[in-house]
Simulated assay, not measured.
Amino acid sequence: MPPDVTLESPNTHRLVSRIAPHWREALGLLVLGSLASLAVTMREWGEMFHQWWNIDTYSHILLIPFIIGWLVALKASELAQIAPKPWLPGLGVIAMGLVLWFVGRMTDTNLIAHAGAVGTLQGIVIASLGPRACTIIALPLCFGVFLVPFGDEIIEPLQVITAEIAIVLTHLSGIPAFSDGIYIDTPVGLFIVAEACSGVRFLIAMITLAVLVAYTRFTSWSRRLAFLAASIIIPIIANGIRAWGTIFIAQSQGVEFAAGFDHVFYGWFFFAFVVILILGLAWRYFERDPEDYGWSVDEVHGFEILKRLEPYHASPMKVLAGTLALCILAGGTAMIAAPVAIG
């Protein structure tokens, strides 16, 4: 008689058995809801991944899913002490995300559509796990905002600021020059603060890192805000100094040498140097280890507002049905409205 054949590996069975029953239900709901959301917003996620993979400004976003996973893993022991309860008002968050996605899709505004796709997924997490569990993982949940590629909107102002800093330092270094917007005319040639030189790539990555550090290493809001401010101001000033350095080197070594030096220095050393500088200045003021970030289970259990939200819990099937209905409605409406929007 042939042996029984099973499609479930012993290792998988052991892994699933280690998950508490209430968490199995919640995670199953989360997976099914996420798949429904991705089916509707697949185009936007494809566009975002294309930007993460192919555009240098957004390449740091490829690390964010791993950072989110790490932050959640740090809270695993505390999450195990909480019973996740699907939350009916979470459907409202999903609906708002889908409305934002729909508006972005219909108006062909990628930033809005991408934000809606990410917001919908965040809403599904809230609806699937409930407010208590989501309070424990508030940081990684909110950190998902940085999955949205943004920053093109500030390129032009950054170009102007960089040019202004560079021209001031050029005059202070004794080099005759005058500027017209992003153009800097010097004895050795005309320099242009192009989009690639605006510093937006570094600034966006630095803001992302700063938020992570601020909420994992500091407890006081004053230090968090000071660190965030420094993480914005210092890179902008440093980029202006870098632009001036290119002009200064061009005076003595030639334009070609300066351009090559700027490419290597900016691409390989500039980012690392400024990050080390900012973290080095803040190191002595760190107030806790990363694994201690956020609220503890005891603190969460003591929040009165969470107690008031208890009556709005619902069964997993009701939340799943509501999630599927919203996704089908949004996807169907977009399919019907798309020809009208195009025409």
Score class of each variant (00 low, 15 high):
196 A>L: 01
72 V>I: 15
231 S>L: 10
105 R>D: 08
176 P>R: 10
175 I>E: 08
299 E>K: 11
224 R>G: 14
297 V>F: 05
16 V>T: 06
87 W>M: 05
70 W>A: 13
14 R>H: 10
63 L>A: 15
117 A>N: 11
207 I>C: 10
316 P>E: 08
169 L>F: 13
216 T>W: 11
13 H>C: 00
300 V>M: 13
93 V>A: 15
187 P>N: 10
151 G>Y: 03
338 A>K: 07
268 W>R: 05
144 G>Y: 07
316 P>Q: 05
53 W>S: 03
82 I>C: 00
43 R>Y: 00
239 N>D: 01
56 D>G: 09
157 P>N: 09
136 I>G: 01
187 P>M: 10
129 L>K: 04
220 S>C: 14
288 R>C: 08
327 C>M: 04
81 Q>R: 15
302 G>C: 01
99 V>M: 15
36 A>D: 06
44 E>V: 07
186 T>A: 09
310 E>K: 11
248 F>M: 11
256 E>P: 02
227 F>R: 12
119 G>F: 00
144 G>L: 06
74 L>A: 14
8 E>N: 11
191 F>Y: 12
98 L>V: 09
276 I>V: 14
250 A>M: 07
151 G>Q: 03
237 I>Y: 00
25 E>G: 14
99 V>W: 12
139 L>M: 12
244 W>C: 04
249 I>M: 06
203 L>C: 06
1 M>S: 11
144 G>A: 09
308 R>A: 13
206 M>W: 06
86 P>V: 05
336 I>M: 12
85 K>W: 03
237 I>R: 04
178 F>N: 10
77 S>F: 09
277 L>W: 03
196 A>P: 04
24 R>V: 05
188 V>F: 03
223 R>S: 14
21 P>F: 03
137 I>W: 03
148 V>W: 01
199 G>S: 01
7 L>Q: 07
70 W>F: 14
273 F>H: 01
195 E>L: 00
17 S>E: 15
281 L>F: 13
161 I>M: 13
141 L>Y: 06
303 F>S: 04
111 L>G: 06
166 A>C: 07
66 F>C: 15
125 V>I: 14
65 P>H: 02
51 Q>D: 11
181 G>M: 02
180 D>E: 13
109 T>N: 12
283 W>F: 12
166 A>I: 02
127 A>K: 02
273 F>R: 01
182 I>K: 09
61 I>V: 13
142 C>L: 14
115 A>N: 03
65 P>W: 09
342 I>V: 13
127 A>Y: 01
343 G>L: 13
75 K>A: 00
120 T>C: 13
60 H>P: 04
244 W>G: 06
248 F>Q: 10
271 F>W: 04
102 F>K: 04
104 G>F: 08
153 E>Y: 10
124 I>F: 12
279 L>Y: 00
212 L>I: 13
239 N>A: 02
313 H>N: 12
16 V>L: 15
216 T>I: 12
109 T>C: 09
21 P>D: 10
308 R>G: 14
252 S>I: 10
48 M>F: 08
215 Y>C: 12
233 I>W: 12
11 N>W: 15
194 A>H: 02
225 L>A: 14
165 I>K: 02
230 A>T: 13
37 S>A: 13
244 W>S: 04
84 P>Y: 09
77 S>N: 12
45 W>R: 08
293 Y>G: 05
